[in-house]
Structures are given as C-alpha cells and as structure tokens.
Write a protein that binds this DNA or RNA. Structure first.
Lengths: 224, 224
DNA sequence: ACAAAAGTGTTGACTTTACACCCATGG
DNA sequence: CCATGGGTGTAAAGTCAACACTTTTGT
C-alpha cells in the first residue's frame, strides 16, 4: 500500500528532551547552541527529528547522544506539542521528554556536528530559545515537580546513594520552599522507594550523615 | 528550507479516540468497522491520520466527525503509541485521545465514506481490533479511571445535571466495586468540581433526588 | 401502610503538620 | 569548648473508612 493523500505527507516528529540537574540549590537545564537553520545560533533544548526506522526511545537517545555525547540517560515522555506553526520548516509534532542527571558526573561535548556550544542554564536565566522550546521547558519543569514526589527520577543524581540532608535540599530547591526535616524524613522514607545502606558520609556538616539509596525497582502506584 | 533526509520522511500521525459511555451499569466504547485497507472489515477505535494543515484538536474532531458524524465531543490526549511496526503501511505515531458521551443523547452514523458499521461494545465483549487499538483501548480505560476522580470528564454524560445516586452508579460501574453512599457524597462534593442546583428529579426511587451539576470551569489534570 | 430508594452523622484509624532539643565531629 | 549541621518524638488537626436509621413518595 502507498500513501497518496498529500495532506498526509510532510509531517515529522520532534523528540525534545529537557535534561535537568540540581546543584547547590539551583535547578539547571542543559541547552545546546544550534549551528543549522532554522534558528541557527540560537540556544535550544536537546533533541531533533525522529527517524522513520527507529522507536521513540531509540530516537530520543540517539538525539541526546548526537547533540551532547551523553549516553545512558533515562528520559520519559510527558507531553505532546502539536501547534501547526511550531516549526517554520514543515509541520512537526514535538514529543516532550524529561530527565535528570548529575552535572558533576556527566561529560558532554561543547561541540558536535550540529551544535557549537552546550551548557547548563539556571531556570531564571534562560536565553531566548529556538522553536517553542521555552514552552516545552516550562511544561517539563512543572512535570518534574510532579514526578519527584512518587518516583525515583532523582536516582540518576545519586547513583551511589544520598544523605537525607542533601536530597531534602534538592526537593527544597525544586519546590522552592523549605521543608521540616523530621517530616521530610518520615514522608520520604514511608514512600517505600528508598532503603538504608549502612554507610555514612559527609554532606555539609561535620557529623557523618547516613547514606540511603533508591530501591532498584519501584512499583508504580495505581489509582485502583 | 526543504527536508531532504529520507529518514525524516514517511512518518504520519494517527489520532485515535476511545469514546466511552456508561449505561445501566455497563461501560461501553464506540467502535467502527473499516471499509478500507489495511484492516479492511475489522472493527477499530474512532480515528485516523492527521492532516499537515490542521491542529491536533481540529484533527481528532474531524476524524470523529468523518467516521461517526458526531460533533461537539470533548476529548483529551493521554498517551503516545510509537512502536515502529504499529502500522503495516508506513511509520505512524498514534496519539491516544479519551472522551465520554451519553449514548442516549448522541446519534452516530452507521455508515460513512470509510466505515460500514458502528456500535457500542461492552468492554468485556470487544471484537478483534485493527492495528494496536486493543492496547490503546486498554490504556484509555485505565486513564478514564484516573480522570474521573478529579476532573469533570463525566460532564458530557450529564449536561443537564445529575443526582448523587445516578453518578455514584457510574463510578461504581467504572471502578467495578460498590461505594458507601455517605462517603461518596462527602468526597465527591468536597472535590469542589460540582455544585448544587435547587432542582429535584427522579432517578430510580419514588422520592425525588436533588440535582447537582459540574461547575463550568475545572482545571483538568492531564497525565500527558 | 408498605415498598423502594433518597438522604443524613459519628466514631476510630490513619495521615499530616507543627514544633525543640541533644549528638557527633572538626577546628 | 564551641560552632555546625545531623538526628530524633510527640501532640493536635485533618482526612478516610465503616456503619444504620429516618424521610419521601407511589401504589
């Protein structure tokens, strides 16, 4: 069978990742500078167009690799952006992806075939972005706030475990408010997504802090 | 600018709606029988391919109209289905939509240019479906259970208001369990999405039941 | 007057929030 | 010995689940 109706042609899929990190009380997102038209020399979220011979997951990972050199990052889809003119070239539907990594444990390329620069940007200091990427970024940050409550999305920030004070600070940063430490511990532990190691390490204080880690497999809560 | 990379071509978007109704304690979904290849003469969810000159919302409404004659139905996107071989014709990404209407207040066409039949099917009596529509339907029903908890998605079932006993029955049907009526009233009212009318009507009993209605503007929590 | 469904409150279990002091370590 | 952040419990308020009787109407 062949597709003949011209209205069905010339549609593409953008896979666009908002990759966040949290550092010293600041949430940052990874942006790259484009070298190609359209939006040449503009900053943009990491991503690009899906190939017709790859699955979505493959596609977003390939795009992240091509534009940053980063491999092994977990991202998940959270929203669809479909306005007719969101791309000036041809009709493109964007699938928004969300991920979190530790800026200190990842190396990314400053330049690739399609980018001339890459960097972390604090959310209150975002330069003008290509396409509708600002809208996508805002939606992604909003989704991040939902996701950290009952998932292990922060696991990639702490592959080797974390202390309560430090992860509490991440929550406080993302939610932009302070949380009582006794209540935070009780709640966070009772979610059942973390477990005790028997190690200790230091965060900000002089007293060693207990090290926790995310459980490997988190069961997703069903409404029913 | 032109798109040259052949890997970017030959991708299309399916817009696929799972349209539910609830009747006499049974949840049903609207299916249509296809007259075109592929999956000729198979039952399918309502939907089709997006045109490159229409917004997503326009597209799904056009598809619903073309395949059923129904207008004015509200649907919202809930998930993306992107496996490479989900369509045998060419690469298609499906956007899954979800809606609810009252089967008694809507008329749909048994035949259209692209369908030879249409009907409501109880969820435990679904025929073999085209494409991956069974998977889409299952995901949609699951999403329906989430959505009815904190949205006015059932509004279309009751444009003129509803009584507590009748809407409780809808909840019990969808969740397939009984609910204490005192607790149901308290919870449902406290959600803040409905309001009192001062009318009364009859449901199953002889005693008139108070009529409630959904508030006009509820912000709906979308998963996607 | 009776059948059938509508309507209404209270209690105990559990969850969430607010709040203050001692502990371990490095300098 | 003191400064710094790490670590801990309890009580009050709010939320959720279980449970039984009275009211209104049609026949």
């Amino acid at each position: 069978m062949k597709v003949n109706n011209p209205l069905y042609k010339k549609i593409g899929i953008h896979l666009i990742a908002s990759i966040f990190t949290v550092e010293k009380g600041i949430v940052k997102v990874l942006l790259v500078k484009r070298t190609n038209k359209p939006y040449k020399d503009k900053w943009a979220l990491v991503g690009g167009a899906l190939y017709n011979n790859e699955d979505l997951e493959e596609g977003i990972k390939r795009e992240i690799f091509e534009k940053t050199g980063i491999v092994g990052i977990d991202v998940s889809i959270f929203k669809v952006f479909g306005k007719i003119k969101r791309s000036p070239v041809q009709r493109m539907i964007a699938l928004g992806y969300l991920g979190v990594i530790d800026a200190n444990k990842v190396n990314f390329l400053k330049q690739t075939l399609k980018t001339s620069d890459a960097d972390w940007f604090a959310l209150d200091n975002i330069p003008p972005l290509a396409y509708d990427h600002k809208e996508i970024l805002d939606a992604a940050f909003n989704e991040l706030k939902n996701k950290i409550v009952e998932s292990n999305i922060l696991q990639s920030l702490y592959p080797n475990g974390f202390t309560m004070p430090e992860i509490q600070k991440v929550y406080e940063t993302i939610f932009n408010k302070t949380i009582d430490k006794r209540n935070f511990r009780k709640k966070f532990f009772s979610l059942g997504i973390i477990e005790d190691t028997n190690k200790y390490t230091k965060f900000e204080g002089t007293k060693p802090a207990k090290l926790y880690r995310f459980k490997k497999h988190i069961k997703i809560k069903n409404v029913l």
